[in-house]
């Protein structure tokens, strides 16, 4: 995935100039769109799964265009270990919180005074958990595949 000869700064006349500039412009919007999908998921199509994949796609696009090393600076691998677990714990923790507050596991109605508001908060929390897990797992899988050294040479195509 990472192409070392294209990462060198002196190689200015690379054939991917347009790709680089356009993607540099697009990647923030892709990430923003992921959060729109996340927080607008209650009202339109979307939710944690889609938002997580879109957020991971922005990191993957960055890695494809600028190389894996640059992507690992922007989205450090240490975030992955933390994010994967935080997401699952956030989901489970919401359930346990509902449990402690007197409801059943994952019954969000007890999270607020009004049952419907409790449901809103609960869904928001678990969607955040799903977002964190999905996004970090997708990035982790891409990093794992991308940083493996290939046996094949490019002439084998």
């Amino acid at each position: 995935m990472s192409n070392p000869e294209q990462q060198s700064p002196d190689n200015m006349q690379d054939p991917h100039l347009i790709l680089r500039i356009i993607s540099k412009f697009l990647i923030p919007f892709i990430a923003l769109f992921a959060f729109y999908v996340q927080f607008h998921g209650d009202f339109g199509p979307g939710g944690g799964f889609q938002a997580g994949v879109i957020l991971a796609a922005s990191v993957i696009l960055y890695a494809l265009i600028f190389g894996l090393d640059a992507a690992k600076k922007a989205f450090p691998p240490s975030w992955i270990r933390i994010g994967m677990t935080i997401g699952v714990l956030l989901y489970g923790g919401t359930g346990v919180l509902a449990w402690i507050l007197g409801g059943e596991f994952l019954n969000y109605s007890v999270l607020a005074h009004d049952a419907a508001h409790g449901q809103h908060y609960g869904i928001l929390a678990i969607e955040l958990g799903v977002l964190t897990t999905v996004a970090t797992v997708m990035v982790a899988i891409f990093y794992a595949f991308g940083s493996r050294q290939p046996d094949l040479q490019n002439e084998d195509w």
Partner: peptide, 10 residues
């Protein structure tokens, strides 16, 4: 019960 429009998310 949940008052959000997207049934799939609910």
């Amino acid at each position: 019960e949940i008052h959000i429009p997207n049934v799939v998310t609910a």
